[in-house]
Design a protein around this nucleic acid. Structure first.
Lengths: 162, 162
DNA sequence: GGTTTTGTTCATTTTTATTTGAACAAAACG
DNA sequence: CGTTTTGTTCAAATAAAAATGAACAAAACC
């Protein structure tokens, strides 16, 4: 087996396990891994046949990767089909990922905690036992962690940029 | 519906979506969310009936949560059954999580990249075109990012501790 | 304008992950 | 001891996620 094929396989495996860590489908990692070691931009057909995946997977995978800024469409003169190229701007990819997949969840979580604090306050008023006060304290501690986590994200993003 | 029940439901939902973000099963979030707002430690029976989950889920979920340091077994005098309490030591939980779920993957990825660099060097020797050199550069850039990512983790862990 | 190529969408199928519950083991009780 | 309670394990069932491929749309070509 030629070295370039072995490298291709390793790259695919590498990115498959990377994307699985972030909860993305396997096909995303396969496509990116293939493009990452390809010396020229590839058409969808090439991707399908090289990886043995369906048209649907290839199309959806590419569109997600484009939306993350991880893959770019390249116009090739005299070629009809779109060609795709891997983009190695890691901080941009991570940025996109955070904005698309994380931000909403975090905002939602923040709202939810606020409502929990309110509820705990209400419970405290009704029954003024110690344990209920503890409950409020716990939820407020959680709220603090939530804020810390939220602050951590821009910190990481800035760090990735240098 | 009593306020404490609403709070319980919100807490469960909150932690379910949090654990799903980290790729852990829903039941883990349910159990932790329930214990988090419980004023007293709960027995497995209580957890099962409160959440409507099976014995198996409860047992497996609790054992994972204990392994993450997120839940502690409490001995209650005169009580036969084990009782469980949520632990809010976030940095410890994250630590456990990183050590158990991340470290191995990262080490594995590191080895894989090294082998990719070697392969790319081999390819470069055989065919000394520009594109192959680019390939090596790309993989080395990836290696740099991998190292950065690896360095980021202890940084985050330290930041969480204060 | 009609035909062919290319790419997208989405209902169905397949695969993977999680939950269930019954069988089992271990400890507590009398 | 034998019985009952409590907790674990794991094969099977169920639920959730991803991949497939056929039908469709959109653009390129002649």
């Amino acid at each position: 087996m030629p070295k370039s094929e072995i490298l291709e396989r390793e790259s695919v495996e590498y990115f498959v396990s990377l994307v699985q860590l972030f909860g993305l489908p396997k096909s995303i990692g396969q496509i990116y891994g293939l493009l990452f070691v390809s010396k020229a931009p590839l058409a969808m057909d090439d991707i399908m046949s090289r990886l043995g995946i369906s048209k649907g997977s290839a199309s959806q995978g590419l569109s997600l990767l484009k939306s993350l800024g991880a893959v770019t469409s390249i116009e090739i003169p005299g070629e009809r089909r779109d060609h795709y190229e891997a983009d190695l701007n890691v901080s941009r990819i991570v940025n996109h990922f955070v904005e698309n997949r994380l931000q909403d969840r975090l905002d939602h979580a923040e709202t939810r905690i606020k409502s929990m604090v309110k509820l705990a306050r209400g419970i405290e008023k009704d029954s003024d036992s110690d344990s209920e006060t503890n409950l409020l304290h716990r939820i407020q501690a959680l709220q603090k962690w939530q804020k810390r986590g939220k602050n951590l994200i821009p910190l990481i993003l800035r760090w990735l940029k240098r």
